[in-house]
Design a protein around this nucleic acid. Structure first.
Lengths: 112, 112
DNA sequence: AGATATAGTATCCAAAAAGATACTATTGGA
DNA sequence: TCCAATAGTATCTTTTTGGATACTATATCT
């Protein structure tokens, strides 16, 4: 059997999660429900505005999050997870679970 | 609550799976048990030897796969999944499952 | 009139990941 | 002696991703 990465289902799911800040943003919105741009910026220590906007836009394009712009000045923008975005929760959970179970592994190994 | 990507558990798990060919290699070894370098090379359409070696080394360093060198000429090297590598199966499964359920989504959306 | 708050843009630069292509070591066999 | 087979290396280039830093628009408030 031969295969290309693009034909791999796992690769498909993985690729929409890849991005330095994407998983955290999704997790935040999943638990907080809705957050403003500025709140996210404060929460995500070290993120630049460019990166934040970029990651949000990509998540939005995938249909995973919602962007709601209030026509006020100064501007107000709220981000929230979509129903579709919520379907990723089992995946994120399984990764969280795995990391919790194996977080000590590297330490154990290097202690040999 | 503030957070950096490196402190995110999901990010931890994700990062060891990221690499263009890593998921496929893991899936192959999980199902085939053991494969030689040349077999992998044939299976992974379009991969360069450099990339194959690189991905294998990184997986090996993480302890996810095993490299067994037979001291023969021409050389023979067999790769196999480790027990630890197998613990990733639930994650890969959940991603596969998700992709199967949502593979039509983009098409549906763009058809509006 | 000038400062303030918010959600971004615009540029330029550095680092990391991936791709193309050619090359190597070894030795048993023709 | 030269070739084939296997599992890689070595180099160089391109693409992608991320980082630093400065700037903007605009109604409201003072």
């Amino acid at each position: 059997m031969k295969i290309k990465p693009e034909y791999c289902k796992v690769h498909d799911a993985l690729s929409i999660l890849v991005g330095k800040w994407k998983p955290i943003i999704l997790l935040y919105l999943m638990s907080e429900g809705t957050m403003r741009y500025g709140e996210l910026k404060k929460a995500l220590v070290g993120i630049t505005p460019k990166m934040l906007t970029n990651q949000l836009r990509e998540l939005e394009e995938e249909g995973l999050i919602n962007r709601k712009l209030y026509p006020e000045v100064p501007p107000k923008v709220e981000y929230s997870i979509t129903e579709y975005g919520m379907t990723l929760k089992p995946i994120l959970d399984s990764m969280h679970e795995w990391s919790m179970q194996h977080k000590k592994r590297k330490l154990e190994i290097t202690m040999d």
